[in-house]
Design a protein around this nucleic acid. Sequence first.
RNA 1: GCAGGGGUGCCGGAGCGGUCAAACGGGCUAGGCUUAGGACCUAGUGGCUUAGUGCCUACGCAGGUUCGAACCCUGUCUCCUGCACCA
Length: 956
Amino acid sequence: MVDFKALQDKWQKKWAKEKIFETEVNKKKKFFITIPYPYISGSLHIGHARVVTEADVYSRYLRMNGKNVLYPIAFHISGTPVLGISMAIKNKDKKKIELYKSYVKPYIKDRKEIEKIVNSFKDPKKLVEFFIPKMINEFSTLGLAVDWRRSFTSGDLIHQKLVEWQFGKYKEKNYLIQGKYPVLYSKTLGNAVGEDDIIDGDINPVDKLEFTLLKFKYKDAFLVAATLRPETMYGQTNMWIHPDVEYVQAKIGNEKWIISKECAEKLKFQDKDVKIIGKLSGKSLLGKSCMAPVINRRVIILPSLHCNPNVGTGIVTSVPSDAPFDWMALKELQDSDELCKKYNLDCNAIKKIKLIPIIKSKGYGDFPSVEIIKKREITSLDQHEKLQKATQEIYKLGFHTGTMIETCGKYAGMKVIEAKEEIKNDLLKTKKADIMYDTSRDSKSRDGGEIIVAILDNQWFIDFNAKGWKKEAHDCLNKMDILPEKFRKQFEDTFSWLDKRPCARKRGLGTKFPYDKDWVIESLSDSTLYMTLYTLADKIKKFKIGESQLKPEFFDYVYLGQGKLKNIAKKLGIPEKQLAEMKESFDYWYPNDHRHTFISHLSNHLSFMIFAHAACLQKKNWPKKISFHGMVLSGGVKMSKSKGNVVTLLEVNNLYGADTFRAFLCNSTSVDSILNWETSEVEKMKNHLLSLFALCHEIIGNRKSGKLNVKFAAFASKFESSVKQSGEYLDKMNLRDYANIVLHAIPRIYRKAKAVADDDLPVLNDYIAERYIKMLAPLLPHYAEEIWSVANKDFVSLAAWPKYNKSKIDPVAEFKEELIENLSTDIKRILKLVKVEKPKKINLIVALGWRYNFFTMFKELIEKTHDMKAILNSMMKTDMKRYSKEIVKLIPSLLKDVSKIPHMVLDQDTEYDFLSQNKNLLEKEFNTKINIMKADESKEPKARQAAPGKPAILVE
RNA sequence: GCAGGGGUGCCGGAGCGGUCAAACGGGCUAGGCUUAGGACCUAGUGGCUUAGUGCCUACGCAGGUUCGAACCCUGUCUCCUGCACCA
């Protein structure tokens, strides 16, 4: 049994010792490939491993193909997660502490030491410092050909300085603007919050809802109703007020609003000047009326126990025609004099309230809410859930299929989907309405504080619609290779809707916003240009370049060539030689030739990256190519801690080893498709590789140079094609088809050839050995090195990719081999049918001579046309005319089923000779005499059935 | 809701207008090899037929375009993924 782990360690150590993947500027053509830097989260899993391994296989091929390959990896620590972990550990969060203990455990034995280390994670820096070397180690177990000297993190000084430079460029170009932005906000934390900060935020996410506040004139004030459906305002019949709630009068700017107290408190966070000046009981408003905006109708104020002061303004406008709740509530009042009396309402007036039709939706009449309540047999307001569902359905249907009808003033005839926006905007413009945000559900932050929506009025945005920027980005995209090409359209779509994106946050790790130190640059916006740093990171470390030197002039000079070496060097205090070396390195390695990433990065990271390059770097340094990989499932489902199906790299390394992982990954799915990790399948791959490893040892251990026997012509042809094809597949980063060839196709054809090799085996082995091992190297670098080392002293990782011998590619030889195989199969079948076990003699009758000419001619004709008459006419002009009777029957059936046409047609003599030469093979197989003849010389009726490539078979 | 991607044999999954009853891998059945197991080899694995290369039915469902469709078009059902002060 091969100890794959020891073998893997051995070669990884050798590579590291010889520094064979540490690359420098040289005369060769360079190739610079990157993957998104992974986020530090504790331990790496097969999701991380996929992207790095695919890039590795591909870049190893390119290295063997003569390129000077740079493949670096850095680490991302910006944003909230690392900080969140530190906070949790600081707050003695037991779960997090245990989790991190489990991450530390594989590396540290002593229990007290583990505790000490995890405790130190209170400082995010310590966490990062601990995990980065571990992650590099874990990645290394995959056998990556990475230049680790060039690693850095997004918290490093060079990264921060680069981001500052980048945002300086944005500022210069007016790509940064400030404005208002609603965020989920915790009053107690005094900060914006994310899902992680909200109780149950992950299972029951909180959304921001935008309410339109309709202002109903009431005495000298406005009764303010909150609605999600401003387009229904033409159907308003009344207002709903909770009789038992105490509302407030608040001064909002110059106006006086009547709203719930809770609402007033919320509005204080939404860019409004709020002053509470009085109180007002809900009861006191009942039966009064107010003036609805725009439609200028007086509507009556009625009681509803479903007005929640916590939602919106606590006041709701009633549109019973389209809102099931409203209709139900109104109906209850209309049906119950008792209820009316309870609130001192005029029963008759209420009974007179008539619904107003406003929207025509698919499948419904004037009053959808009436219909649906009847249909769903809802009888009381207490059936809250049913009503909710009915509301949702009507809303959805109205929104997508509805049209405003003639009652809706100037909006009549418009689709609801359009009218909604327009009505809202019109109302806002004329100050008849306002906007407020609210949460989609009651929610609390982890410290128990209430979550509300706050409007930040000085939020920084990157303005992707800034003048000229999108055009540049499109220019960049147009010149890029996108793999697979089908994703280009998605880029275009993304570019078109990209608008203003908040680019700074109030919390998290990262680079301080240079123009407003209260803000931190957000973690997607800070990682769009960092690939440039790979060209410098090692040198900046080596030269000990510090903060005072990484000024904008530094990047202006190195990246953009602005300024004179002498001046800049002097100004920054960097020796000229060093500065020149860094510039040379950047100029050599940049642009980024290839970026391999996850599909879901397309609409954010990758698009931002293109924009950033377009904004900050010269055209020649814009990215060249992006390729995509699909996601990783484990056991058919998404990996998650709660499901317990996360497969870590440590596990992979212990149970299967790098080469098994690499082979499984590349062979089981195409790069852009979903990879499903199934332990049983991986196990099989492991076994397959073990037998392949043994096979390769056999091949390399038993070799003799010499001329390859002609009997291997078909084998040689297939092997040469395999060499050719695997190169072609790799060029297109088609890793699966490449893996298929080296893992399955070649062993298969080899074993077949080996079976008949006899004494020629060593020569056969010699013919393929070196090239085959080289072909395995990108996929299975460890096994390949080991086998290679049997006969060579250098590294196969650095060997030249094999060339194929075009002259040996011989379709005829392959066809002939196929012919013999088919014959053998057919004979077996017939023997079985005839129930003859030991035939005395087998006659093989080669088809009639003219048939060969016919098929040759037919194949040519069918290239041009499928028209039967045309084909027939052409045929009849030749001496085929003699066989017209048969041809007339043949052609229709051939046209109907093209598969009946042999894919290659020899001539009769060649086929006859070939069979004669090889009849001993068949004789050996069937242990009987084989007789070969031409149909033209046979009287057997079956002889006439023979077709080119398909001799008739007669068993005696 | 918006956006994107799928539905193919016992399974994973190729194919994306004609050499397709469907690559490749796996499973299963039979046979060989083997002390046994494993590994490996050979054949079979939609139905029906047959001294072989034949016919029929199939690529979610329903239509359409075409000499010809798993592949193109339309509708329909259905599954998955992304949409955060997550990265």
